[in-house]
Amino acid sequence: MQIWLLPPGLLLVGLALYDALYTTLGRGGGPLTKQLSRGAWLFTQSQTGQRVSGFFFSQLGLVVLLLAIFSWTVLLWAGWTLVFLASDGAIVSATTGAPAGLWSRIYFVGYTLVTLGLGDYQPEGAVWQMLTTTASLSGLILLSLAISYVLPVLQAAVDRRGTAAALWGLGETPEEIIRTMWDLDRGCSAFEQHLVGLTPALTTLAQQHLAYPVLHHFRGSRRREALAPSLAALDEALSIAEHGLSGDCLSPGAFHPARAAIDTLLDRLEDQSTGPSSEAPPPPSLDGLRRDGYPACSDEAYHEALREDVCDRRRRMLLGLVEGEGWDWDHVLDGYDD
């Protein structure tokens, strides 16, 4: 008898099911999944010399997703193995009645969890028969949860790339967004329309990142598919419109919901990344807009406004997010697509 194996075995089973349930039900990820996602993020931070377009980085989201499911399976398998090792006579051969060895019990737990029911080994006694049924049920639950989790995560990854492409379509740089959306003759009604249309998508994306922590690792390998630099370009364009250009172009009804959606998304992403950069990035220049007749403010007033606490922290968060996804701030200001 090795009854002392029973508590740690049940603990591992409980941890696997709790983490799987908490994660797949959209509560923000269980403790194991959060640590796995965080570890993957920190690992990518240590690989700063690699290109963001590399195969590993483009497949990182799928790798982390599969690792999460694999970790649940290993924990559940290991936990039930310890449970059935707690008694020498728990599992016996169906033909000879001899107690099963270690590898036979591992094998028994494996086919029990996937409900194969091969029958060459069987539980001995009512207690172990009930525990076998419970193990089979837990395996069925885990398999169902894993399948139901993969599909919405992959759909959310498609939505993330779609939102990034929509942001890219507004303009490749903050200055280009202003020029595209703000016509000096007809005003910036087009800018407001696009902001109103993008706000629900950004809000939904923030909630998807909260529900599926692994979504943060589904990164675009090309600039036009990358969320972080395009999101930063849009936010910088909003900062130009708010602090760098005189006059009230954007109405509060369009501007404030869009900025709030960006802030909410950044809050969600901050929980899964290394946080804000230590210093704010360089602001976009107003020289080109000023030269072409846009009502630009003085550089002193513009830079002073960007140094305000709320604006400074948001820009540092954007820089940390951009660099964390393998890009640099030049991709925001220059917008070139590799």
Rank of each mutant, 00 (worst) to 15 (best):
L62D: 12
H209R: 07
V214Y: 01
W168V: 03
G247P: 09
R179T: 15
G79N: 02
T134Y: 05
F56N: 06
L85Q: 14
V158A: 12
I262P: 04
A258F: 02
P152S: 12
Q122P: 06
E300C: 01
G125T: 07
A90T: 00
L6P: 01
D309V: 11
T44P: 00
T48V: 09
A40Y: 14
M181C: 10
L82E: 03
L198H: 04
P8H: 08
A305Q: 11
P281D: 06
L269H: 00
A100E: 05
G117V: 07
R316N: 02
E300Q: 13
E304Y: 05
L210G: 05
T96S: 15
D248G: 14
H331P: 02
S58W: 00
L66V: 08
I262A: 07
D88W: 06
S136N: 11
A100W: 05
S93P: 00
Y107W: 14
P174I: 07
V74H: 00
L17S: 07
Y149Q: 11
L15W: 11
G89H: 12
L5P: 00
P200M: 10
D185H: 12
F191G: 03
L15E: 11
A146V: 10
A296G: 04
L15T: 13
S138F: 12
L289M: 09
T199M: 06
Y111I: 01
L245H: 06
M317T: 07
R268W: 00
F84A: 01
R222M: 08
Q272R: 15
G247C: 08
L60W: 02
S189W: 14
S285K: 11
V92H: 04
R51M: 10
V109G: 00
G169T: 08
S189C: 01
S93G: 14
C188K: 04
V13Q: 02
T95P: 00
W80G: 00
D309T: 13
L17A: 08
L65Y: 01
F191H: 11
G117L: 09
A100S: 06
L15V: 15
H331L: 03
T199H: 10
G139N: 06
H216G: 04
G139T: 09
T115D: 14
L321F: 14
V109Q: 02
T134C: 08
R224F: 05
A280M: 12
S93C: 08
F55I: 08
G14N: 07
T112E: 10
A146Q: 15
P200R: 09
P174R: 07
I106T: 11
C311R: 14
G54T: 06
L250W: 11
E225D: 15
W329H: 08
A280C: 03
V63L: 14
T96G: 10
H243M: 04
Q272M: 13
S71G: 02
L118H: 10
S138A: 15
L76V: 09
G29Q: 07
D271S: 09
G162T: 04
F70E: 12
G39Y: 10
Q47W: 10
R259P: 02
Q129V: 04
L198W: 10
G320M: 02
R186G: 01
L5M: 12
L10H: 09
Q50H: 08
T112H: 03
A78E: 10
P257T: 13
E236G: 02
L321S: 06
A68N: 09
V63G: 03
L227H: 07
Y111A: 00
G335C: 08
